[in-house]
Amino acid sequence: MSIYILCLILFSVGLYCVLRKRNLIKIIIGIGIMEYAANLFFILIGYRQEGRAPIYAHDQVINNMVDPLPQAVVLTSIVLGLALMLLLVAISIRIYEKYRTFDITKINRLKG
C-alpha cells in the first residue's frame, strides 16, 4: 500500500514542479516526472506476489507471472511520453528564440 502512496507522492512532486517553477525547462522536467510516476503506478498495479517476468518459456515450470498487460501499456505510454517531450523541447527552443527568456510568467502575450 505504501508503495502506491509513494508513487502518487512522486506524481504530486511532478505536478508541483509544473505549477510552481518558472523556467520552461523545469516545467518540462516536471511533466516528465509526472509521466514517469504514472507509468510506475501502472507497473506497480501489475505486480503479483511471487510472480516472475511474463515471458513464456517451454522448459520452465511457471507458477505465477506478473500481469503482462500493464507492461505492454507502459511501453506504449513511454513512447507517447517521448514524443511529447521531443515536441515540448523543440517548442521551447523556438520560444527562446522569439521571446529571449525562459520565464513562463514573462511569456504571456496572449491574455484576456
Binding site: 520552461l24 517548442i91 523556438r94 520560444i95 522569439k98 511569456i107 504571456n108 502575450r109 496572449l110
Partner: peptide, 11 residues
C-alpha cells in the same frame, strides 16, 4: 511567437 507560446501552454 504567439503560436509557439500557445502551443506550449496547450501541450
Amino acid at each position: 511567437a504567439e503560436a509557439l507560446e500557445a502551443s506550449f501552454k496547450y501541450a
